[in-house]
Design a binder for these strands. Structure first.
Length: 493
RNA sequence: GGCGCCGUCGCCAAGUGGUAAGGCAGAGGACUGCAAAUCCUCCACCGCCGGUUCGAUUCCGGCCGGCGCCUCCA
C-alpha cells in the first residue's frame, strides 16, 4: 500500500485552493448531492455526475481509499406535485425515475457509488437527528412541523456568505420564529406520503436528509461534500447548520461545487427554465465519451456553455484522441526506444519525450484543484506528436518502443479519468451506430454503396466513383480511401 | 437591496508578474487518381480606465458588461 499522492483542492468554505487533508490518513469520505427523482436526468445534472465520477476515479487511481456516497431525494414536494398531476403514487413515480437514472448512469459510464441512500429508507435516521436538534435547543416543534432555529447557530451563513438579516424574507410561515428558519419536518397534509414521528405524521424537510444520510454512512465529518453550485444556499448552508449543531463537529472539511451549464443567452440550464436536454437524448446521438470530454474540457468550477455545437465539437475532439491511440497501437517493433528514436529522427524523439514527460504534467494539472482542462491540453499535444510520427512510412515497423510511453499515457488517462476507457474499435463503432441513427441512415445501404464504389475504383472509373462519393457525402458519410479498400465515417459537423 | 463568480483568438478553453497551452472552425501547403484522414504553416497582446512595479493579461482600485444564489434546482 503506497501513500496516496497529495493534492490541492478548492473549497467554497474558504474560497481558496489548499492542500487536502483528510480526517483519516489515506481515506476520503465523499458525499455528493444526487437527484430529486421527479424527472429525467438532464445534461446539466450529468455534468455533476461525470465530474464527481471522474474525481473518484482519479482519487482511487492515486491510492486514496474513497467512500463515495450519492443520495436520491425520493420524498419531496415536486415529486408529490407531479404524482398528483398524473394521478400516480409518489413512491412509484420516484422509483420509476430512480430506475431511469440508473439507466442514464450506466449509459454515461458512471461508477456506482459505494452507498446510494434514499430519503424514504432513511426516515429513522432523520427522525433521530431532528430529535437531537430539539434536545440541544436548535430546533422547535410547531403545529406538527419542526423548524430549525437559525439564531442558535452563530456561524449560520459561513458557507454561502449570507447574513440572516440580509436575506430576502419570503412569506413568514405560520409557526416560524424567524423568517430564515427552515423546516426539518413538515406536518402531513391530506393525500401526501407521511411517516410517524414524535411530532405527528409528516415527512422530512429537504435539507435534513443529507445531514442524516451522510452521517449514517460517513460519520460526523465528511472529507469532501460535493454538489452543484446552485445548492450552496440554502441547501448546503442548512446542512452545515443542522450537522454541526447536532454533532458538534465540522460537517465537511472541503466543499466542492461544480459550475452550471449555461445557455447561449448565458443563463443556466435548469428544469425551472424549461431549457433542458435529457441525458437519454444526448446519449442516443453521441457516445458517452463525448459527454465526458465535453465536461472535462473545462475546469469543473467554471460555467460551461451549452449549444448545438457542444457535442459535435466534443465528439470531434474525443475521436481525435481515439484515432491517435489507434495509430500508436498500430506500430510494431521491439528494439530499444532510444535507438529507434535516433534512427527515425526528431518526430520519433518528440513522441518519446512527450510520452515520458506526460504523467508528471498530467498529475501536476490534476493535483492543482483537478484541472482537467489543462491535463487534456497535454494529451492533445501528445496525440499530435503520435499522428505526426504515424505519417512516417519507416515508423510502422519499428516505432512501437517509441510510442510505448504514449500508450502508457493513454492508459493513465483511462484509469484516472475514464476517458479513452473503451477499446478503440468499440468506440469508433459506437460513433458510427449513433451518428447513423441520428441521421436516420441504414448501415446496410451505406455499406452497399461503399462496396459499389470500391468496384468502380478498382476499374479506375474515377468519374463514377467520385459521383458516388459525392452522393455519400450528401448523406453525411465521409469516405476515406486506402490501399486496402475504403473506410467510412459519419460526418460529425 | 444583500452575498458571490466571471469577462483570454469566430467558438470552447488553460495559464503566468517578464511579452499567451490545447481543441473546434477557417486559409495556404504536403500527401492522394481526385478526395478524406493525418501532418506542416498561418490565425489573439488577454473588457475599459487608472494605480503599484524596471515590467501586468496576470496584483490593487474604479467603471462597463454577463452570470449565479438569496424561492425548487446538479
Amino acid at each position: 500500500m503506497t501513500t496516496p499522492r497529495p493534492f490541492r483542492l478548492y473549497s467554497t468554505l474558504t474560497r481558496d485552493v489548499r492542500p487536502f487533508e483528510p480526517v483519516v490518513p489515506g481515506q476520503v469520505g465523499l458525499y455528493v448531492c444526487g437527484m430529486t427523482v421527479y424527472d429525467r436526468c438532464h445534461v446539466g445534472h450529468a455534468r455533476a455526475m461525470v465530474v464527481f465520477d471522474t474525481f473518484v476515479r482519479w482519487l482511487r487511481h492515486n491510492g486514496w481509499a474513497v467512500t463515495f456516497v450519492r443520495n436520491f431525494t425520493d420524498v419531496d414536494d415536486k415529486i408529490i406535485h407531479r404524482a398528483n398531476e398524473r394521478g400516480e403514487d409518489p413512491a412509484a413515480l420516484a422509483q420509476r425515475y430512480i430506475d431511469a437514472f440508473h439507466d442514464d448512469a450506466t449509459g454515461l459510464g458512471l461508477l456506482p457509488p459505494d452507498h446510494e441512500p434514499r430519503v424514504s429508507t432513511s426516515i429513522d435516521d432523520i427522525v433521530r437527528l431532528i430529535g437531537t436538534l430539539i434536545d440541544k435547543g436548535h430546533a422547535y416543534p410547531s403545529e406538527g412541523s419542526v423548524w430549525f432555529d437559525v439564531r442558535t447557530f452563530p456561524e449560520y451563513g459561513k458557507l454561502s456568505g449570507q447574513k440572516i438579516d440580509e436575506l430576502r424574507s419570503g412569506d413568514p410561515d405560520a409557526g416560524k420564529r424567524d423568517a430564515a428558519d427552515f423546516a426539518l419536518w413538515k406536518a402531513a397534509k391530506p393525500g401526501e406520503p407521511a411517516w410517524d414521528s414524535p411530532w405527528g405524521k409528516g415527512r422530512p424537510g429537504w435539507h435534513i436528509e443529507c445531514s442524516a444520510m451522510s452521517h449514517a454512512q460517513l460519520g460526523a465529518t465528511l472529507d469532501i461534500h460535493g454538489g452543484g453550485l446552485d445548492l450552496v444556499f440554502p441547501h448546503h448552508e442548512n446542512e452545515v447548520a443542522q450537522s454541526e449543531c447536532a454533532h458538534g463537529a465540522t460537517y465537511a472539511r472541503y466543499w466542492t461545487h461544480n459550475g452550471l451549464l449555461t445557455m447561449a443567452s448565458g443563463q443556466k440550464m435548469g428544469k425551472s427554465l424549461g431549457n433542458v436536454i435529457n441525458v437519454e437524448d444526448a446519449l442516443a446521438a453521441f457516445p458517452a465519451q463525448t459527454l465526458r470530454l465535453y465536461y472535462l474540457q473545462n475546469h469543473y468550477r467554471s460555467p460551461l456553455p451549452w449549444g448545438p455545437e457542444a457535442l459535435p465539437d466534443a465528439l470531434a475532439m474525443v475521436s481525435r484522441l481515439y484515432e491517435a491511440r489507434e495509430v500508436a497501437e498500430s506500430f510494431e517493433g521491439d528494439e530499444s526506444a532510444d535507438v529507434v528514436a535516433k534512427d527515425l529522427g526528431e518526430d520519433a524523439q518528440a513522441v518519446l519525450d512527450l510520452g515520458r514527460a506526460f504523467a508528471a504534467k498530467f498529475d501536476q494539472a490534476l493535483d492543482e484543484d483537478f484541472n482537467t482542462a489543462q491535463a487534456l491540453g497535454f494529451l492533445f499535444e501528445l496525440a499530435r506528436a503520435v499522428n505526426r510520427l504515424g505519417n512516417h512510412k519507416k515508423a510502422k515497423k519499428r516505432a512501437r518502443p517509441v510510442v510505448k510511453p504514449a500508450l502508457d499515457a493513454f492508459r493513465l488517462v483511462a484509469s484516472a479519468t475514464g476517458l479513452l476507457s473503451q477499446p478503440t474499435s468499440a468506440f469508433l463503432e459506437e460513433v458510427r451506430e449513433k451518428r447513423l441513427s441520428a441521421l436516420g441512415l441504414a448501415r446496410a445501404d451505406i455499406e452497399q454503396l461503399i462496396a459499389q464504389r470500391d468496384e468502380l475504383r478498382r476499374d479506375k472509373k474515377w468519374a463514377e466513383a467520385d459521383q458516388l462519393r459525392a452522393e455519400l457525402d450528401q448523406k453525411g458519410i465521409v469516405v476515406m480511401d486506402s490501399p486496402t479498400g475504403a473506410e467510412w465515417r459519419v460526418r460529425i459537423q
